[in-house]
Amino acid sequence: MNEEVETSLLVIVLDTNPAQRLLRERTHNLTQCLESVIAFANSHLMLKSANRLAMLACHSRSTEFLFPPPPAAFGTQAAMLRQVDGQYELFTHVEKTIRQSLQQLLMRDTKSEPVGSACESLLAGALAMALCYIHRLEQDLSSGRNMNSRILVVTGSADSASQYMSYMNVFFTAQKQNVTLDVCSMEQDMSLLQQGCDITGGLYLRIPQLQGLLQYLLWVFLPEPPIRKKLVLPPPVKVDYRAACFCHRELIDIGFVCSVCLSIFCKFSPICTTCHTVFRSPGPLPIKPKKRKIKLN
């Protein structure tokens, strides 16, 4: 047993928020996404028998584990473990469990009354749950075994500023725990998640067409992080790390930072609105007297 098998844990976060434009316009897209992701998940399991998988569905109001199923539901699932079409039982199990859990999640959605118009995906929360799950598995890991963990986000929504702090916490935790964050964006450019990918050393890919989703997933995201260095993969995107000013919350290139409380402003104001420190205005730049042209004749 000299050969040490390194486990690779893949946690997939699938955005199933009905507010995504992709789903609103064509509900069949969800089926396609789901099928692609399941196929991708099974490919991951197929690579090594030690590989592990988890999958979360991120909805507008809740996030739930699709796989592995919650322990309560496990009893009913076990009966279904029968070979179908010569497919490996584990794959069948993964496929069926995920489908069923997501179906249940969607069915439950109508029963609970809609709350307000908050319809953004709770991606940060889903990421946090994924991190917790990874942490738990790492704790349970028997000594002498290695596990590399990563989170793959498959989403069609834009990133929301209201979850900014949660995002940042998640990113830095992931970095601290050596968890790679990959993002496969199906529609929007997500500058926040780009930062997360950059910090954790993951890949960010915005796919140009949904049709080839499975192809993109297999090509770019299937190899586990330690192997990626050896492959020719899309280069990291230039990440926009600009800060937002406190006054208008707009991204600024050059701003004024209060030396006392480190608040950021896009315009100079003599009194910092956060800590009320009074600053002297930087006087007008001395204007040089214009040189008169000397005629040379």
Binding site: Y164, M165, Y167, A244, R249, S263, T274
Partner: peptide, 16 residues
């Protein structure tokens, strides 16, 4: 140091 509107530290950019 008395800070007002501390929540501004916690905000990201304006939602697109």
């Amino acid at each position: 140091l008395s800070l007002s509107r501390v929540e501004r530290y916690l905000h990201g950019p304006m939602p697109g």
